[in-house]
Simulated scan of single mutants.
Amino acid sequence: MALRLFEEVYNSIRRDMMRGKLKPGDKLPSERDLAEQLGVGRPVVREALRALENSGVLEFRKGASGGAFIRRGDGRAVSRTVNDLVFLGTLSLDQLAETRSCLLDQAVRLACKRGTNADFAALEANIERMRVAIKAEDVETSIFEIMDFYSLLGTAAKNDVLTVMIGSLSEIIAQILLALRPEHLTDLVTMRLEVLDEIKSGDADAASAAMAAHMEVLHNYVVEKSDNLHALNLQPFDTKA
């Protein structure tokens, strides 16, 4: 099937990225210059640039030195795709939770081998912030800290791919928790301290078992309370990125 003009422009820019001609932070030529270079109209270029922005490749900056810039990569585009597929019914929440548990199992096992004292201190500080936020009944901050724990695990595991994938699968869990506003978040503090203690001891099997028990409680709650996702009136989770 023939590509539409804007898709050809979209793919042309992505090819330049794949070949190293465009790198994070690079500014693209103006719409007019791109249109002349590629032999298309400016509306076609504009549509392609907006599609690249929506996919997380570009960001637009305002001002005299503004324009379209290649973004430094993050997992937000993956998060949006996963969330959309869940809400469209292509992926089940149950399977998402199962996959997330598998990734977190690998994260804690790698953290046992690769984690540093600085990583452990960051995880401890995160758990303390979560405890304080829960005590203050600040649900939004509590849930942000709950989700940030997983990113810090990825850092301790020294695996950026795991960090991105876990974060992408965690966003919908955060949305659901924000909507449900569970009353027993304090249990998570105790469970996470147990996971961290096992990671610090370097016992991968014990850390894996502690994380599995933690995830079973959380995922069972989320899946049980989310039979009809569309009825929860969910809002996108602010990752404060």
Rank of each mutant, 00 (worst) to 15 (best):
F6E: 08
S12R: 14
D16W: 15
M18E: 15
G20S: 10
S30A: 00
D33Y: 07
P43C: 13
E53S: 00
N54E: 15
G56K: 12
F60R: 15
R61H: 14
R61F: 11
A68T: 06
R72S: 11
D74T: 15
G75F: 03
A77E: 06
A77P: 03
S79N: 09
R80Y: 07
T81M: 12
N83A: 01
D84N: 09
V86Q: 03
S92E: 01
D94W: 03
E98L: 13
T99N: 02
T99M: 09
S101M: 14
C102N: 09
L103V: 05
D105S: 15
Q106R: 08
A107P: 02
L110F: 09
C112D: 06
C112N: 09
K113T: 14
K113G: 01
R114V: 08
T116E: 09
A118K: 13
F120P: 05
R129Y: 05
A133E: 07
A136G: 01
E137W: 02
T141L: 14
Y150T: 04
Y150C: 03
L152P: 13
L153R: 09
G154I: 12
T155W: 03
D160P: 04
D160E: 15
L162C: 13
T163I: 02
S170V: 02
I173F: 08
Q175F: 10
A179K: 02
L185I: 03
L193I: 02
D197Q: 13
E198R: 10
D205R: 10
S208E: 14
A212T: 12
V217F: 09
Y221K: 12
V222I: 13
V222H: 02
L229Q: 00
A231T: 11
L232Y: 09
N233M: 05
Q235N: 04
P236C: 00
